[in-house]
Design a protein around this nucleic acid. Structure first.
Lengths: 145, 145
DNA sequence: CATTTTACTTGAGTATACTAAACTATCGAG
DNA sequence: CTCGATAGTTTAGTATACTCAAGTAAAATG
């Protein structure tokens, strides 16, 4: 049965296309979006960001400049270490990037009302497992380089 | 309830990270991957590819050069019109890009065995609807520019 | 304190992928 | 068969985002 494979490809294509559209709309490159995604977990120092993304510190400075210029993040001093710069996403209310994803979330939530609580539980379980599989496969790719 | 939102973001992040890992592993840029994705539907002429991706013909020539160099596509003459070049993905057996997605599909299929046929039906339905939502949101973004 | 290390920025040089426009080959219409 | 239109390539110029190395400021070490 190859149906699940086809469906999976369709889903991943749709997700990637959505991200591309978001990036184009906001004038933010794919790489910059990756940084935004990481920052959704909370503020990071410029150095931590560099390590996560695999760029040199100099490149990160430029990237944060761009994101700051687009109003998507702020630079804030680290109160505990004045050498550091904390890169923090701007508040959701003023952050177009978050807003786009909020729209998506709303549409998804509306769609989910079609399902009974029991069905929603199955779906949620499935999504969790899918995320695990994707992370696993991603790890396999990055390690085996 | 914001659970579905968080779950959706996690899923989209996981998908995007996977694609990035694939690209890095194969030495193929995100844009080039988009072309590969389009070509999974079958061969396209260079011009059609240009229109789909929104690039100039010259840019597509370079892109196809790269993909051909990586062994992911072939240029073939169109028998009906010798001006045209059909860009065709190489056979799955020799196509590392497809293989990566095959691995993912296999893992997904294995994971799906956890669910009963009835549950699988619900999940499949959900994925279909999710794809629709994503396409809808993508369209909204690209139009409203 | 003086010295070394760490965090980030700056600036010069470079690689990549794009556009625009000229060029070649082929097709289709009159 | 000739002429304009179409498909793709080529070339020159450009924008972008990167690396590497030097520079500045602050913290940690001894």
């Amino acid at each position: 049965m190859d149906k699940s494979a086809a469906v999976g490809r369709e889903l991943s294509t749709a997700v990637v296309m959505f991200h591309e559209a978001v990036g184009q709309k906001l004038g933010v490159s794919a790489g910059d979006q990756r940084a935004l995604t990481l920052l959704r977990g909370g503020p990071l120092t410029a150095g931590a960001l560099a390590k996560e993304i695999g760029l040199t510190p100099g490149a990160v400075t430029g990237m944060v400049d761009r994101l700051e210029g687009a109003g998507l993040v702020r630079r804030e001093p680290d109160p505990n270490d004045r050498r550091r710069v904390l890169v923090t996403p701007t508040t959701p209310g003023h952050n177009a990037h978050s807003n786009v994803f909020t729209d998506l979330s709303a549409a998804m939530a509306a769609m989910m009302t079609r399902y009974s609580p029991a069905e929603q539980k199955i779906i949620s379980d499935f999504v969790d497992r899918t995320v695990d599989v994707l992370k696993e496969q991603t790890a396999k790719l990055t390690v085996k380089k």
